[in-house]
Design a protein around this nucleic acid. Structure first.
Length: 194
DNA sequence: CGAACGATTAGCT
DNA sequence: GCTAATCGTTCGA
């Protein structure tokens, strides 16, 4: 296998026991695979229990219950009735914090992702949270699943990478909170950073 | 029970 | 840049 970035050790639940914005920054450059398909994480956003823009802000509900479960697991939700979006649950159990995976640099399983997405352009395979969900085959049955067990693989970056940050995308509340993180200069971001 | 609203995307002007 | 698509969740009456 030819990774274009160096891959580090497997991430465990302990890696997710931290503030969501710290985890979101740490995840930039990590490798994310689902059944061997995926790539390097180049864009994330953090959401927190005390954050009006977060699904967890108003407390546990049927939809967000995995956000209040153990860290190091997936929180999957349906967006706009159309898209599946993937989050990594973090901080301590019961807190309701998570990190939205917004974009990947596609590295493995390109043909699978092209078929699922119905297009060729690598730049459009995983450049957006809904696109990531479609390309990786994310569905509700991955909700609450551990990130350190199949079908997930999450490997931390071996070396530090340059990270940029800015306001989160597509929200109407807490727009002043700069909890969107990206790999500096990446061609695979969903949008440019201001 | 009805209505409004999304942590979005694709397609068209 | 603008808007339709599409449906589960949330909130007010």
């Amino acid at each position: 296998m030819n990774f274009s970035s160096k891959t580090g050790r497997k991430m465990t639940p302990a890696d997710f026991m931290a503030q969501s914005h710290e985890v979101a920054r740490t995840l930039i450059g990590a490798l994310l695979l689902v059944d061997g398909v995926g790539g390097r994480i180049v864009e994330t956003e953090a959401y927190d229990r005390l954050d009006p823009a977060s699904h967890s802000f108003s407390g546990p509900t049927l939809r967000n219950q995995s956000m209040f479960g153990p860290p190091g697991r997936a929180y999957v939700y349906r967006s706009y009735g159309i898209h599946w979006c993937l989050n990594f649950v973090c901080r301590e159990e019961g807190h309701g914090a998570g990190v939205l995976i917004r974009a990947l640099e596609p590295l493995l399983g390109l043909d699978v992702m092209r078929k699922r997405r119905g297009l060729e352009d690598v730049r459009l395979l995983c450049s957006g949270p809904g696109r990531v969900g479609q390309a990786l085959g994310i569905t509700a049955d991955l909700n609450g699943r551990r990130l350190d067990q199949p079908p997930f693989q999450v490997l931390a970056t071996a070396e530090p990478v340059p990270v940029v940050k800015g306001p989160r995308i597509g929200i109407s509340k807490a727009t002043e909170v700069h909890w969107r993180f990206g790999l500096a200069g990446s061609a695979f971001l969903s949008q440019r950073f201001g």
